[in-house]
Write a protein that binds this DNA or RNA. Sequence first.
DNA 1: CTTGAGTTTGACCAGTTGGTCAAATCCGGT
DNA 2: ACCGGATTTGACCAACTGGTCAAACTCAAG
Lengths: 203, 203
Amino acid sequence: MPKDRPATRIQKKNRAAILEAALEVFSAHGFRGATVDQIASEAGLSKPNLLYYFPSKEAIFTALLSELLDTWLDPLRALDPEGDPLEEMLAYVQRKLQMSQDFPRESRLFANEIVQGAPRMLEALSTDLKDLVEEKAAVIEGWMTAGRLKPSHPKHLIFSIWSLTQHYADFDVQVRTLMGSEDPFDAAPDFLDTFYRRMLTPA
Amino acid sequence: MPKDRPATRIQKKNRAAILEAALEVFSAHGFRGATVDQIASEAGLSKPNLLYYFPSKEAIFTALLSELLDTWLDPLRALDPEGDPLEEMLAYVQRKLQMSQDFPRESRLFANEIVQGAPRMLEALSTDLKDLVEEKAAVIEGWMTAGRLKPSHPKHLIFSIWSLTQHYADFDVQVRTLMGSEDPFDAAPDFLDTFYRRMLTPA
DNA sequence: CTTGAGTTTGACCAGTTGGTCAAATCCGGT
DNA sequence: ACCGGATTTGACCAACTGGTCAAACTCAAG
């Protein structure tokens, strides 16, 4: 393991390659299903070489998680309390859907982990994520009591957005199998826009 | 492996115990993350004894999948083309939500498998499930063109129902973490009923 | 070109895992 | 009580897995 001196050119390159490879492998097989050898070979390194940069499989995984979680929550963070309520919500849905299209591996990585009880993420869930959700749920609740959105349960509403958008990434195989040649992402933006307009447009 | 004579009392009991144990373990850890030893001990058998009833880990898994898939699709099969469109759709949503509440392990079993590319389910998806979805999507489409449901994309609508209802089972840890002491299943039925009423009630 | 830190590797290890096998035990019908 | 098939088990194996280590190699700065 390199000392804590400033990272060298080679360190930067290899760490990045490892995390990219880890994303590929972990998202496809889950933590337990992924092997260090797989990740190393995907990154173009030998196994001992990979373990020179990260002390263990677990360390790679948690480094990857913490690197990605922030980005993953950006769309929700960007929900602007000062903006127009309906447009803010619809824009949030579209940002989240775009993430599913552009970063399906990240979505599946989290899905894998959470489905299995999130043993390595519980802390992040119950601190960072929980705070953010409380904050934004309050904003949405405010909009609803002000009559600027049709009333509903704010947290369930947020869950519904996660669920509907991430479904296209997490269940990609199923969705594509059932849609035949048609690309799910062609119709999804319109579908979700319509869905949430009907759900949220105040009377 | 027992011959193909009629199954004995002991065979029935042990096969059932194995499948129950397999559901518990596979749904919690995925195929790769589950071990035969875990399943055997959960079923109260030794590993060689378990392998006397099923020839391999893979065989247990596929037996489990095919046993459960049918039940899993029942709520959609029950969608009645002769019933009232809006009530049929809302009832389907509630049946599916009830399945998530009553059989979360089954939901997570499928989720695990599909997120990882459904390597052991693709055939079932592209035959049984695909046929069923085509059939029911056509029914829904018919209701929409007859003006009895607000128009929308039928397949995406079905996906949305799966997504929203299964989310409560598959992402249970996350949902519960973020809802604190409140039980998600208290508010979910109302939330989804409202959601799909707004979405589907014709003008 | 030397030097010393940074990097890479082959050989290796202990624990786990899916699966096998022959021998032992159990059980229901006669 | 006895028999033959059904059931169960302990011992075992080969493959795989995460991880270690000392030795070798590379590279940039002086």
